[in-house]
Nucleic acid binder design. Structure first.
Lengths: 242, 242
DNA sequence: GTTGATAGGTTGTCTATACCAGATGCATTA
DNA sequence: TAATGCATCTGGTATAGACAACCTATCAAC
């Protein structure tokens, strides 16, 4: 299970292994997970190493520790997730939910004015449109249209997005590190197309999301419009006073 | 400096000791603080113990570690402000819009369980319900139900809220400074009552907003549910990577 | 039946040690 | 001069062991 010669730290491997079990619902909210000593014996590692994995997952809100009793899978609570900049995949993963993506369109398009302005590019410059249906399990959650500047992601059309995080891809292959984003969240009724793809009733409400994301150099690289099923998703925000 | 027989853990004492130095500006943003090994020698504790203090302070964002270089006092986060915590009045002012509020209800009520939990108060303790219709000009924008712990705002019932900011009132008269809040934003169809008060068509979408706000001492003081007209309002958020 | 002690589980804290990995300055070398 | 390598700082990871604090079930004493 754990590879001690791996470039990744043992505690990190264990951490992700546990996260997987939670995401896959093998361990469900409220469940008591193996004790620190059990984990250390099972994987032949020190208790402190196992403990580091549990500590970090506890800080992330996925686990809940009670002295004298044990460590439990946290209820999918609303406390931790702030407004981190993540893609859908990471967002769902952090909430302890397994997600998939199904690509509907991946093509070069003439960029709409809205996109031009958001990405600060000139007219006639092509953009890549990546449209995906987002699901958890078999349930569609959101319809997402993502526009990227073609010049910056030329080989993107050859990628396979099924089950892959776009943001990870951008970081690893295109030297684009998402750093901050501006987002607008509004409510609306679903369109005909959304109704069918999201498998919801006519006249159902959706959360409409518009996002411009910026890279490490402050350049906008992504403009995304999403429609989330209102019955399956709420947007979480942490507000701070200045 | 550190008392090993104290009821408080050593790492915690050290943590607070370091926090004091930072708060008192003895160690300033950007400063290199003593290394883990230096701390462990200076206070005659194990390096791992000193490390635990630094780790937690790093997680809290007060310190910044760089492998090979050392541990630094973090810069007072500039890009931290995700979304500003403001009341409706300030929110609208930021958007350059004049707003009004029309009080529909201001009364003592038995607190619903949801409110109890959010405000962390015991059952049977009364809460104040302040329900207001928010308008810009003559147009209704939102319906807002705000719950406050009665014990903390005893004389609130005598206040006049027409055109006054609740948050300003709390700051000036009740020693409650809104500091941060957790908010959920979802979409829904309007209820019958909302339809009439907001002057919208039947089956119109609304943005549903739930907020728990905390004061300068970390105590929750407000739980608010709002319904915003989807055609007049979008929620703005700034997302940052961590 | 109620109370109380206890045994054995859990996480929490702390120590001492070791080695790895990144950063840096300096002496050595080409 | 420029490059190389090494010593020695730094934080990062991992181990093994000890005891404290806390929780629960069980069993004995009242």
């Amino acid at each position: 299970m754990l590879n001690k010669n791996y470039p990744l730290p043992i505690y990190y491997q264990l951490k992700e292994l546990i996260r997987e079990k939670i995401v896959a619902r093998e361990w469900q909210p409220g469940d008591l997970i193996p004790s620190e000593r059990e984990l250390s014996e099972q994987y032949d590692i020190s208790r402190m190493t196992a403990r580091q994995a549990l500590t970090e997952l506890t800080n992330e809100g996925l686990l809940h520790r009670v002295q004298g009793k044990g460590t439990f899978v946290a209820e999918p609570k609303i406390e931790q997730p702030l407004t981190r900049l993540t893609g859908f995949t990471e967002d769902m993963r952090m909430r302890g939910v397994q997600s998939k993506g199904h690509v509907l369109r991946l093509e070069l398009v003439a960029s709409p004015t809205l996109v031009l302005r958001a990405l600060r590019i000139m007219p006639n410059q092509p953009v890549v449109l990546l449209e995906r249906l987002r699901l958890t399990g078999a349930d569609p959650i959101a319809l997402e249209a993502c526009y990227l500047h073609f010049n910056r992601v030329q080989s993107l059309m050859q990628e396979n997005f099924e089950g892959i995080s776009l943001y990870n891809l951008l970081i690893e292959k295109y030297d684009i590190t998402p750093t901050r984003a501006e987002q607008q969240v509004g409510a609306d009724l679903c369109s005909r197309r959304e109704q069918e793809l999201l498998n919801i009733a006519k006249g159902s409400p959706v959360l409409r999301n518009k996002r411009v994301a910026f890279d490490q150099r402050g350049q906008p690289f992504e403009y995304t419009e999403s429609a989330y099923r209102a019955d399956r998703y709420v947007f979480q925000a942490e507000l701070v006073a200045l």
